[in-house]
Nucleic acid binder design. Structure first.
Lengths: 110, 110
DNA sequence: CTGTATCCAGTCCGATACTG
DNA sequence: CAGTATCGGACTGGATACAG
């Protein structure tokens, strides 16, 4: 996580760094579809994720300003997660990759 | 590297996967500036990289269709690396992130 | 010049169990 | 419901030495 230091740190390198990880992008993509989700909803939508991995990913994403956490004072507890505006912009850029039909094929048959 | 399987595999997730790693993006960015480079040139431009890390990164990028390797039959040996067309398109998208002045700041102060 | 072989340390990922 | 604690195992990064 220090490799952005001696290269001139670019926003793109930083962005790739904070979204790298097994569950981060899948979580962000779920949030981009559902607007807001609570903890257990992720467990239903992300096949195979465990508590510890979900918690870690959510905390990392929050630390890096990609998602917001909002705890509603209720019983039973209810915590709501949603994307920040910056993250929505970032996903907008990444989604351009999806819009290229055949991107992966083109990669292998240039 | 298996996490793209049980999520519906999207091109964006695949793209992030193949460019994740400490040296891959820095290598690609150098190549986008210099058109083509040979092995030792990378060692001069990428501060702190070792032979083994450079070799691994170059091989991974080639395997994933992001760079091309061209060995010129000479003595001393001379091997030339360059970006594929698909990789140039991908970098074009990522560069949009750099063009947002204040992207990182916006992330933290939404 | 362009790599490969070893071998080790640090990170990341995750099953299982437990908590307020 | 929304997490935390623990403890491995897998993967990634890298120093050093060597090779065609």
């Amino acid at each position: 996580m220090l490799w952005i230091v001696y290269q001139e740190k670019s926003a793109a390198i930083y962005a790739i760094e904070v979204i790298s990880g097994k569950w981060r992008l899948p979580i962000m993509l779920e949030l981009s579809v559902h607007e807001s989700m609570w903890y257990n909803e992720f467990k239903h939508h992300l096949d195979g994720i465990s508590n510890i991995m979900l918690t870690r990913a959510l905390q990392d994403l929050e630390t890096n300003g990609l998602i917001q956490r909002k705890e509603l004072a209720q019983l039973p507890r209810h915590v709501e997660y949603s994307l920040t505006a910056g993250c929505q912009q970032l996903l907008g850029v990444l989604d351009m990759i999806n819009e290229w039909e055949g991107f992966i094929i083109r990669l292998y048959h240039p």
